[in-house]
Design a protein around this nucleic acid. Structure first.
Lengths: 131, 131
DNA sequence: GAGGGTACTAACTATTAGTTAGCGCTTCCT
DNA sequence: AGGAAGCGCTAACTAATAGTTAGTACCCTC
């Protein structure tokens, strides 16, 4: 942060995902990690309880789900609302930042879903090639 | 693919990232995996050679870079052009699909880069909270 | 002629993800 | 009334995956 007398456009991005120690890279890795991205996608459809997420995100274990939720909560992408009742009830919902992130992930997922035939073809071709 | 006589909008998405065995989920995981996403981001800035990518993507090992490149090539997201010369020269560039994917990742990265102060604050707050 | 760059790969180890079991409590089914 | 299932986790253990080190065969610069 050494911009002594910068009078250019309001804000300049000083953070860089390519930089190993940058918060944005850590957050990027957190967001794109296997289960977190799917959790965000699920929450983009509306608030969910723990068990609902577990069922929605096919194949996630309770351990990984809990871990992903903690990470996303820590980065301020989602809100955890513990009703404090018995039996327990905890609701998860996206913050505005989480919603923006989830929106980009949705675009990505849509692109990939639409490209499935192309991808399948490419894989077949690649795998049939020698070496 | 069981849409016997659908006459609605041209194409309907039948693939679902939430489904464990779906190609789109596999591709999604491939694309969002730790190094692949960074490689795509780097290639979005233009074609790169192996060594250039290695230097651009801070912290990647040659093994992981090679592995990521194979995966992305297999899914048809990038093109590998081996000059066949000695010393070796291999150029990597994005396909149209890879470019679309990289664009979404760029949006995601921009969002996160801009949110760094917010994320740092959230982390500090989260970590200072008891338990 | 020593050192570094080219694009990798094989073998080994550290880290991380996944599995299993359990917690105290409630509600449903019989 | 007894048993099973669901709730939201967590600890301990194991399987998978990521990262590290070293090596390849050749070239160019100092």
């Amino acid at each position: 942060m050494d911009t002594p007398a910068a009078d250019g456009p309001p804000q300049q991005l000083v953070s860089d995902v390519f930089a190993r120690a940058c918060t944005s890279r850590e957050a990027f890795e957190g967001v794109t990690s296997r289960w977190s991205s799917l959790v965000l996608l699920a929450l983009a459809e509306g608030p969910h309880r723990f068990g609902e997420l577990r069922r929605r995100v096919e194949g996630v274990s309770e351990r990984m789900l809990a871990q992903s939720l903690r990470g996303l909560e820590r980065d301020g992408l989602l809100l955890r609302a513990d009703a404090g009742t018995i039996p327990p009830r905890v609701d998860y919902s996206l913050t505005p930042l989480g919603d923006r992130v989830a929106t980009s992930l949705r675009v990505l997922a849509d692109t990939l879903e639409a490209a499935v035939p192309s991808i399948d073809g490419s894989r077949l071709d690649f795998d049939s090639r020698p070496r």
